[in-house]
Simulated scan of single mutants.
Amino acid sequence: MLRSRLTLAAVALALFAAPAAAQEAPRWSFAIHGGAGVIERDSLTPEQDAAYRAALHRALEAGSAVLAAGGSSLDAIQAAIELMEDDPLFNAGRGAVFTAAGRNELDAAVMNGADLNAGAVAGLTTTRHPIAAARAVLEQSPHVMLIGEGADTFAASVGLEQVDPAFFFTERRWRGLESALRQQNLPIPERPVGAPGPMAANDLPAPPLNERKFGTVGAVALDSQGRLAAGTSTGGMTAKRWGRVGDVPVIGAGTYASNREGCAVSATGDGEYFIRASVARDICSRIAGGSTSLTAAQAEVDDALSLGGTGGVIVMDTEGRPSFAMTTSGMYRGAVSSSQPARAAIYGDEDLRP
């Protein structure tokens, strides 16, 4: 199973990025992901496929608009991820999965490669945009990571929008929780206060309930000033317990950026393995040691996920070349730059070159 997964990833590696020598270094560059997993052509209807591609393009447009106007890589990342946090297609913000207790607990992180400053939050329940909260931790606090009620309190204190927890509720994620808890023989909690009444099964929005993917969202960017940055946001894993926190807010695991090492990384997948292998930082170390971003990304993902689990990463280097690596059959992803038009992909055999 592992061998076939890595073989697929190696094929994808050859397809996803144009050779460095064939491209002029762009003035700015931007790439995003919306989760990796078992995403195959026969698992999405044409309408679902189109919906995801449209959502990816909206996020690319938001980020590229900032960068084209001379904005910072951090601003571009926040603009794109906030859109994805508001889109129920993704497991972030409105559309996040539920804990075993029936709550949405949200994590996010950002890192500025120019000065190695970082901000992260975990377990948010009332802050509409976790990526904005992570950015506020970076810029308006002396800390790197805040968690739980304190993180929401801090976000409110700096003026970030607060919402009722029911804002994040979506029916298909609730149904996914019910299914997961039944499989684990765990009790199903009461529906959250303020959530809408149950929907009929045939009224549920796409995609289908049996989707097997990781809907974490992320972005990496190089701005016109040469500053790299990375950001990631997630609702975590369905039916998580005991205050579980994954790799996303762990700087160096699911999120990392460093101009000195020449990379920005955002990850998606089985977070426990990304944490154990320090995937994002290790990719940067490989690049600093002379590997190309594409080779470093795939080698690190293959090594880390040989421990178990599946997932993928997006990487941006100092030349503005985006790279995509995965051990899965698909990853929602896209890229755009000042020299190349926006393009989006879903399945593992799609080529993102313009």
Rank of each mutant, 00 (worst) to 15 (best):
S4P: 03
R5E: 06
R5H: 08
A10G: 13
V11P: 00
L13M: 10
F16M: 09
F16T: 13
F16Y: 09
A22Y: 00
A22M: 08
A22G: 06
Q23F: 05
Q23K: 12
S29G: 12
F30S: 06
G35T: 05
G35M: 06
I39F: 11
E40I: 00
R41W: 13
D42Q: 11
D42V: 00
S43T: 14
P46W: 11
A51P: 10
A51Y: 04
A51L: 07
A51C: 05
A54Q: 14
R58H: 12
A59R: 11
A59M: 10
L60A: 03
G63P: 09
S64L: 01
D75H: 14
D75Y: 15
I77W: 07
Q78W: 02
A79H: 10
I81N: 12
L83P: 10
N91C: 12
A92G: 09
A92C: 08
G93A: 11
A96L: 09
A96E: 12
A96H: 08
A100W: 13
V110G: 09
V110F: 09
N112H: 14
A118V: 06
G123Q: 08
T125A: 07
T126R: 13
T126S: 01
H129P: 00
P130R: 04
P130L: 02
I131G: 03
A134N: 05
R135L: 09
R135E: 00
V137I: 15
E139W: 02
S141D: 05
M145R: 13
L146N: 04
D152E: 04
T153L: 01
S157H: 06
L160V: 04
E161V: 04
E161C: 00
E161S: 01
Q162C: 09
V163E: 04
A166Q: 11
R172Y: 06
R173W: 13
W174K: 03
G176R: 06
L177M: 15
S179M: 11
Q184N: 13
P187D: 14
P192N: 09
A195D: 10
G197S: 05
P198Q: 09
N202E: 15
L204C: 03
P207W: 10
R212S: 14
K213P: 03
V220E: 10
V220G: 07
A221D: 10
D223L: 02
D223H: 06
Q225P: 04
G226Q: 06
G226L: 06
R227Y: 08
R227M: 05
A229K: 02
A230W: 07
A230N: 02
A230P: 09
S233F: 02
G235H: 04
G236S: 03
G236P: 01
M237I: 11
M237W: 01
K240R: 10
R241L: 11
R241N: 02
D247A: 13
V248K: 04
I251A: 08
G252M: 10
A253E: 03
S258H: 08
G262H: 07
A264L: 04
S266G: 05
A267T: 15
T268E: 14
Y273T: 07
R276W: 14
S278F: 14
V279G: 00
D282F: 00
I287Q: 06
A288K: 07
G289L: 01
S291H: 03
S291M: 08
D303C: 06
L307N: 09
G309W: 02
I314N: 04
I314G: 02
V315E: 03
R321N: 07
S323I: 01
S329T: 15
M331I: 02
S338Q: 09
R343E: 05
R343W: 03
G348A: 15
G348N: 06
D349A: 13
E350A: 05
L352N: 09
